[in-house]
Amino acid sequence: MIGDRLKLLSNPGIFGSAALLAGIALLASRLLLYPPGNAFVFIEVGILFLFYGLLVLGLNLQYGFTGIINFGHVLFFGVGGYATAMLVAPESARGIALGLPWPIGLAGAIIAAALVAGIVGFASLPLREEYVAIATLAAAELFTDVTANLPSITGGAIGYVSIPQPINIWAGGHYGTFLTSTLLVMIGVLSFGYVVFRRLTDGPYGRVLRAIRADKEITDTIGKHVFRYEMEVFVFAAIVAAIAGSIYALFIGAAAPGLYTADVTFLLWIGMLVGGAGNHRGVLAGLGIVMAFELLTRFLNDLPYYTSQQFGALRLAMIGLLLIVIVRYRPEGIWGNAKEQGIE
């Protein structure tokens, strides 16, 4: 009996709903939670994992399923963050700030992402794959450059620092409760995202995407409008990323160019390749592994001989090496399907 109940929980839709409800209940109950002091950093990284998880699912849809090489995915995370910031930040902020309620910020993020993705996708997707990579990378760099250099429009290099944080307000400003309820809510959001992505790819739609990844020309010849599918996937993933970006801005109360750099894209790619492109749970696990590695090595900063800055360099060198090794020896990642990924 209990076994059956537990099995229900393994259904991500139910699991997600449960988490979301738990989060809301926590906030409504006005319970004050005091996680142990050093648990905070784990919860914070866990929350960041959940946000990045939405990004990696979108990236996986593009690359693992459709064969789109997007090196600028963080762009849409940033578009979502900045759109929300501009709509929701109080008028006292530098840059455009309209002080509107947060749901409008979220809606604005979605609309902005759809527009930007429409333009970037239309310009980049017809190109050959390695040029798509470069074009999307350039678009993302352009975004961070421009936002960092227009103080009166986007707040410059500092960006927005006083965006209202709805969950924090509902938690009465109590950090422990704020973090825990955010964690629960985001588990819910990611679970829903997971369900949507799974449904998209499990069915006939996913079959067409995989056909496109296998061979664009052949797939078009059998009657599928390849460019339209690529645009749909690109824009859809962008919207999901922007939703994540919007909620993230409302979580940390800030939006700044430094949050949306190519380092994020790189982390997503490594996580996806390590876990196994084409496998939703795989890429989430891969992302988790890489982020866990980075978190745990932070505690080793206190080793003698290496300063923490040098330790950072060691960590980055190892990540670079990891990427090289994966591409060379295990391109399908830990959980990817080599046959479906076209690896001999």
Partner: peptide, 24 residues
């Protein structure tokens, strides 16, 4: 694409090894 990805990994590796050797 595999070559591009490898070059990105190599970029991180080389740059940080240089930093480890010579300092930042």
């Amino acid at each position: 694409i595999p070559l591009l990805l490898t070059s990105i990994g190599l970029s991180f590796l080389l740059r940080n090894v240089i930093q480890l050797g010579f300092g930042a």
